[in-house]
Write a protein that binds this DNA or RNA. Structure first.
Lengths: 202, 202
DNA sequence: GCATTATTTTAATCATCATTAAAATTATTG
DNA sequence: CAATAATTTTAATGATGATTAAAATAATGC
């Protein structure tokens, strides 16, 4: 039996959860690069210098691997949001911060983050959890917009559609960004401005 | 032998290519709704009231089905672009037209259009063709931006990043829009403005 | 160093669909 | 209607890769 084993959810166990996290990043990289159906567990394992069967020490099956990738992706977004809300001044400035932080995390050390295609093929409970996280995040973003409209920094707009537009842009990044640091820098430099350019109240 | 058979590429044959087109839409719908790995050929066939094996009359294999979905998606984008360029006045107005037309096609009769996850798992030739189409389209959009900057309707910006941002937003639509006409109307109403709001020269 | 636990590998097995071949049906054309 | 071609189905087959079990190795605590 394992004392601090695969079952435990807490991140207290450094050894195990560190390796697992490395695995999730490797998987995210594979999924983004080769597509979901295009990456076998062997691909992920190869990237880690392991054998495919070894992955099952960290994860029950491929579905769960995907699920965990998505949870991680959502976590990254949530952290960025939290930090932005903590530090932000008015609504618009907080939106800008959020965008900056989220992108910073995605293209930086925390990345890569898996693009969330294939949510629908998760098993129901996993799917629901991911969708819940996703909805919560969207709601938080819309709340930011609302706050900005209230404090006069953001021009009135359709919250849902504006949120979808900006989030879509963000979500698509992993589809074309694959780790080039030069590009990372440029995204970080340009995207927050581009995505928030249309928001400001006149 | 078939006189106007699966092999022929031309769209002259109405009977065959009409059905095939219906099939591509069904497939797109499935892929968007259930994910790629989550849709079996049977799912697509069910939607058409056919048996899975029947699909092979229209397509060599599942890979080719995906490929054709993507080509169709690209075609839709290209048509929108062409029409916008034909009708547009200045750069900014042409961008707005393009956005409107493309969205109109995506959420309207031409849709649904498959989201292009899984390009990487296409076989090399197909992948290259799709990527070429994709690159051409991006280039056309950037050209529009450039034109706008030249004629003074669009403020100077990083073409590549601005293009990526706007295209990403567009590409993500099939991930959350699944045919509700009310939503379709709202997207059409809001997105062109939202996506072009940041572009205008001051 | 021994005992125990953690991690990884080797070597099968299994399941799911995609795929195929042949037959059956349906449509078309002269 | 007869003949030919187009379309679909039935019924197998097959391939890929996920998954598992047992054994092997590596790490850790005493």
């Amino acid at each position: 039996m394992q004392s601090r084993s695969p079952g435990t959810e807490n991140a207290i166990d450094t050894r195990f959860s560190l390796k697992r996290n490395r695995m999730l990043k490797a998987a995210a990289r594979c999924f983004n690069l080769k597509g979901y159906s295009g990456t076998s567990l062997k691909d992920v394992a190869d990237l880690l210098g392991l054998t495919d069967a070894a992955l099952y020490y960290y994860v029950r099956n491929k579905q769960e691997l995907v699920y965990l990738c998505y949870v991680r992706a959502a976590d990254v977004g949530r952290e960025a949001m939290q930090r932005a809300v903590d530090e932000g001044e008015d609504g618009l400035e907080t939106v800008r911060r959020y965008l900056r932080y989220h992108i910073e995390y995605m293209v930086g050390d925390q990345g890569p983050v898996a693009i969330m295609s294939e949510i629908p093929s998760l098993k129901p409970e996993h799917r629901e959890k991911v969708l819940a996280l996703s909805r919560t995040h969207s709601a938080a973003f819309e709340a930011l917009l609302e706050r900005g409209i209230a404090d006069g920094s953001i021009a009135p707009c359709d919250l849902r559609m504006t949120g979808n537009a900006i989030m879509g842009s963000l979500n698509w990044i992993p589809k074309w960004f694959h780790g080039d640091p030069t590009v990372a820098e440029k995204i970080l430099e340009e995207f927050p401005r581009i995505l928030s350019a249309g928001l400001a109240a006149r």
